[in-house]
Each structure stands twice: as structure tokens, then as C-alpha cells.
Design a protein around this nucleic acid. Structure first.
Lengths: 341, 341
DNA sequence: TTGAAAGCGCTAACAG
DNA sequence: CTGTTAGCGCTTTCAA
């Protein structure tokens, strides 16, 4: 269907050099079975004619595609964007190609994508699950088909696999503790509706920090946002406007920090005077918000890079095997003016 | 090398149904040559056995891969992240897969990537060139090989191809005019070192707005940043600290808005009282910066989406042809408090 | 409407 | 060290 220009093939090279196709093939891949002289002859012709092998033919023969599939919820999110950067750096370095798929937080899309991967389209998968992902059979099915998979950031605890994460529990604990030390009595915890392990860990960190500091854990101080619902925003505003008003907020998701700022602005509440705020975020602009936002900053690039490295290393082995290890790369608490000094 | 699980093949299906491989193949692709009854039989078995075709074998046979290559400078940039979103939406909708490549602003990498595309790895390319891209033979070579390519945002004027851009000249003109109307006399224009057409257009908009308003165009008011150099930042600071200090700044690139804020903070200059600032930016946080940043906001999602749509439409045709049209989707000037009212 | 046969361009034993 | 022989799994004429 494509009017593709007659691309050079191994066969043509073979004819030109009076060698066999397989010799050329091996020479190009620098096989030890081939003499240096013929390698040189071959490479010269390859250069001269600008021969570029057909990757799909190679894949078919060798049963691997030199490509990895990256499945993430969003790309407009500084965490994921930076993680992709890390992934790409490793891929690039090792001659892998990167197929990107966005689930937009939909488990249906996630299933669809993983199912497609059963085709052998990718040699391995890097996955950060959607908020909707509660069941995980689709992940197991793929892995059982022999497709290596490494989770990063948003992992599923129940699935046995290699995982690269950050210390969500501790970070949330520290964040909460900071607010408490700073005198907050009513601390809101904002998150999106989901069953993500990562959310739970953050929530538990928050909860335990409260309890360890003899503060009540109040169910109603957990605000669970639906996607972009106005209602949730109004609830947040209400919480910040009661007589016994919330005086601290932890936005456990990057996107939820801004609504807090917005609400405070509309209510003419001072941050950090009236309300102190901490956000889980990789925003480069955090330092320039009004006021600068104290953040839990995840090592996004490193997480992506490490996950990719794990996968690529495994793919390089004769017998592919991931150790099912969990690598934890700690986040950093960056103090700024949204929490009082 | 891969211990891939014995994947189902057409041959196996054929045997089970007592049909030929080609019949199955056609049935699966819903060919009109196949009777409805056999189509049904085939599809039932396909469902039951969960048959998934090998994409690389298909590619080899059909000479197209159903994947597009997206080449961009960075992904940690809200413009590109949003553009990817647009691209992905179209790809997804049309059954295309998306390979992502980052040049990190290096023309060498860009060349390497485009050269790889000569292999037939992708059916078409979406390209936003690196800052270093001055020559463009690598792009022409690829196109001459018959690989369809659509530029988006950062185009190369000299190359004939379809392009999706925004109105950079007008936007910069409007931005400059706004500052002038607001009383600015010394307006800095910040950009990165490059020969990008897009930069030139913005610069010209700035220049002409000055001239049309009887203000001098001063070469030294153009600050050209190298990548992350401290020196440039210091120069910016100096410009903001002269007796005849700059009183307006246009950051013609998203990344350069923050240094301005930083410099003003360090110099204790008030925005917009002492200096008014406008940034070309898609930052969601713009509204929450201190003060909220007036921006030229590009239609990132639409640009990506439109470029992808153009490409995909062309790929769907028997005889692939792009009309070499240039589609312009206008940006929006969003007034916020970094420019006085 | 179906099927046989000939590839697509490359890899991979295995011989020589 | 090089070549021969089979495929990889699918698409595509072209006959039947």
C-alpha cells in the first residue's frame, strides 16, 4: 500500500560482494564467526550504500523487537514527564525504542493496551497503573505470557514483579509531622478517588503521624476528589471556611495543590498564616508560587531511569528473569513558605 | 533468545477450522472476499483462543507498521506534554502506535533518529525540531525516501512539508504592544540561542511592535540564553538593575519566565510595579505564580492533535500525499497580574 | 468464495 | 570462517 522506496536488502548486498546473505547478516551484527576482512568489506559497502536493516524483519527472525512499552496515566504531569526522561535516557543508551501509551486513568484502556502487548510488540513493559486499577488479572496474564514487566511509582502490591517506588509512607508521615510541629490542629488530606497502593501508603503516613502526635484522625478530613468535579472543590472551600477551620492541607497529588491555593485566594485566607500547605509535587514552579509551595518531591527521573535499567538489564540476559525486587528511592521534603517557619 | 510462550499463529487457526491460512488472514481483516459464515466461524475461534496477530509479521508483509514516530526536543515542557496528549488521542483513535524520541535539543540526535526512520520503522513522522537544527538535509532525505512527515510548532521554513503552527509573530507583537501600552520603555526579549524560525517570528513581532510604536529597537535588549548558563542569568539581573533599568520582559520561551521572577525577587523588584512580565507558556501554574503570570498560551493539545490528524489521514490514503499546507492555530493572550492593569 | 504458492527481509541452526 | 537451508507469521497475487 505504501509506495516505499525500494530499500536495500541483505540479499542485494550479498550479491554485490559475492557473499551469502547470512554472512552479511552476521558481519553487520559483528559476529565473532566472521573474519575481520570481510567485516570490513561489508561495513564499507553498508556505509557507502547507506544500508539500514528492516527492524520488523529482524524482529520476526530474532523474536525480539528492541522496543519497550511505557504505560502511564498521563504525560501532562511533571512526575511522569520526568520519569519518561529517565526511561528514555536508558532506552537510548541501550538501543531500545520507546512506545508510549496513556491510559488517562482508565482501567479499560490499560487492559486494552496490555492485551495488545501479548502480540510481542514490545520486549518488555514499564507500567504505572491507572487510578481505576483495582483488579490486576490483566497484568498477571501479560506476565504469564512471558512478557517482562517492571512497575514504577504506581505499583500493585498484589502482583509479584520488580518495582521501583519512593517512600510514600514516610514522606506523608514527615509532611504531616511538619504541619503538626508547626501548630496545625486540623489537617486535611486531599487525594483522588482510587484504590492505589501509593495513595494508601500516603494516607497511612498521614494517619499514623496524627496518632503518634495525639491528634485525632478524623475521617471527614480526608477529601477524596472525583475527576475535576466542582463539588469537591466546593467541599474543600467549605472545610477551609468553617468556624473550626482546617489550618493545614496535604495535597497528596500534584494536581490538587492548585485548588488549595485557589480556594485560599477566594476566601482571602493567608498561606501560611491561616492555612499551611504541603504538596506532593515535582512542579518546577513550586518555588515561585504565591507563596512558594513546600513539597514532597519525588525522584521522578531516577525512578524512571532505574525502572528502565532494571528492565533493560533483564532483557539483555539469555534467560530473562526479574528478581521481583522492590527498589525504594526516597523523596525529599523541600521546605518553602507555604508552611510557616 | 526470548522464551516467548508459543503464540498462536494463523496456521494453527487454519488447521483447527480446516481452512487455509490466507482465508483466515482475510477473514480477520474483514475482507469482502470472505463469506459471512466463515468470517463468523473464524472470529469465534479468534475470540475463544484469544488470538492476537504478530504485528511485525504483518508489517513485513504489508509494508506498514501502524506506528508513527514523534520527535521532540523535550517532554518536560508543558507545551510538548500537551501536544503529545493531542497526538496520542488521534493515534489511539486510529489504531496507531506512538514511538517517542527526545532530541534534548541536539541536532546530532535528531539526525540519528530520522536516519533510523529510513528503516521503515514508522509509517510517518511528527517532528518539532531541536534548537540546534539549522541545516535540514536530514529531514529532506527522510522525506525523499517516501516517509511522510508533518512539522508541528518548531518547523523549518525551508523544508516543504505540512506544518501545524501557531501565530508566533502576531502573538509576540501583541505581547509587546501590551507592555508598551502599559508604559514600558525598555523591554527585554529573552530567548535561547538558536536559529529556529519560530524564534525569529517572535523576535520580529517584538521588533515591529517597538518600531510601530516609535520605540527604539535595541539589539542589547535581546538576551540570548545558552543552556542553563549562570552567566546569562547574571546578565539578565544586571539589565534589571541598571539605572536605566528594563521595565518590561518578554520571555519568548516557557523556561525563561522563572529566571525573571527569580531575578526580581533577588533584586526586590516588584512585578508589575517595577517590571512587567509576559511569558510564552502553557504552565498550568501560571495563574498561581507570584504574581500571576500574563501568558501567551499556545493551543498545544490542538496543535498536536491537528498534526497527528493530518498525518494519519494521509497514511490512510492509497497514494500517500500531504498537501504541504500550513495550518495556523492562534495562541491566546491571557492577562494576569504580572502586567499592570 | 477459497486456497496454493511465493514472498516480505532477516535470523538461526547446521554443514562444510 | 562461510554458506545452505529453513523458517519467523503474515500478506498477497493468482488460480481454482
Amino acid at each position: 500500500m505504501n509506495q516505499k522506496i525500494n530499500n536495500l536488502t541483505l540479499k542485494m548486498l550479498a550479491k554485490q560482494l559475492g557473499l551469502s546473505v547470512s554472512t552479511i547478516s552476521k558481519a553487520i551484527r559483528d559476529s565473532h564467526e566472521i573474519s575481520d576482512t570481510t567485516k570490513k568489506r561489508v561495513n564499507e559497502l553498508v556505509q557507502k550504500l547507506n544500508y539500514i536493516p528492516n527492524p520488523y524483519a529482524s524482529s520476526l527472525g530474532s523474536r525480539n523487537s528492541k522496543t519497550i512499552g511505557v504505560v502511564i496515566p498521563e504525560v501532562v504531569d511533571s512526575f511522569f514527564a520526568k520519569a519518561i526522561n529517565g526511561i528514555e535516557s536508558i532506552a537510548q543508551e541501550n538501543g531500545y525504542h520507546v512506545l508510549i501509551y496513556l491510559t488517562h486513568e482508565s482501567i479499560e484502556k490499560e487492559k486494552q493496551i496490555l492485551k495488545d502487548f501479548e502480540s510481542g510488540r514490545v520486549d518488555g513493559v514499564l507500567l504505572s497503573v491507572s487510578r481505576e486499577t483495582c483488579s490486576h488479572s490483566h497484568i498477571n496474564i501479560l506476565m504469564n505470557k512471558g512478557v517482562p514487566l517492571v512497575f514504577f511509582d504506581r505499583v500493585v502490591d498484589e502482583v509479584k514483579a520488580s518495582k521501583v517506588v519512593t517512600n510514600d509512607y514516610e514522606s506523608a508521615y514527615k509532611a504531616t509531622e511538619l504541619l503538626i510541629k508547626n501548630g496545625c490542629k486540623q489537617i486535611l488530606f486531599l487525594s483522588f478517588l482510587n484504590t492505589l497502593a501509593i495513595s494508601n501508603k500516603r494516607l497511612n503516613g498521614y494517619k499514623n503521624a496524627l496518632l503518634d502526635n495525639r491528634l485525632a484522625f478524623i475521617e471527614k478530613n480526608i477529601l477524596t476528589f472525583q475527576n475535576d468535579s466542582k463539588k469537591d472543590y466546593l467541599l474543600l472551600k467549605k472545610k477551609l471556611n468553617l468556624t473550626k477551620r482546617a489550618d493545614g492541607v496535604i495535597a497528596s497529588v500534584e494536581k490538587l495543590a492548585l485548588p488549595v491555593y485557589q480556594a485560599c485566594e477566594e476566601l482571602r485566607l493567608n498561606i501560611p498564616g491561616d492555612v499551611q500547605v504541603i504538596g506532593f509535587s515535582n512542579l518546577d514552579t513550586a518555588a515561585f508560587l504565591n507563596p512558594p509551595l513546600t513539597t514532597i518531591t519525588q525522584p521522578a527521573f531516577e525512578i524512571g531511569k532505574t525502572a528502565a535499567a532494571l528492565l533493560v538489564k533483564a532483557l539483555g540476559r539469555k534467560k530473562i528473569e526479574l528478581a521481583n525486587e522492590e527498589i525504594i528511592i526516597p523523596s525529599t521534603l523541600v521546605l518553602r513558605r507555604s508552611t510557616s517557619l
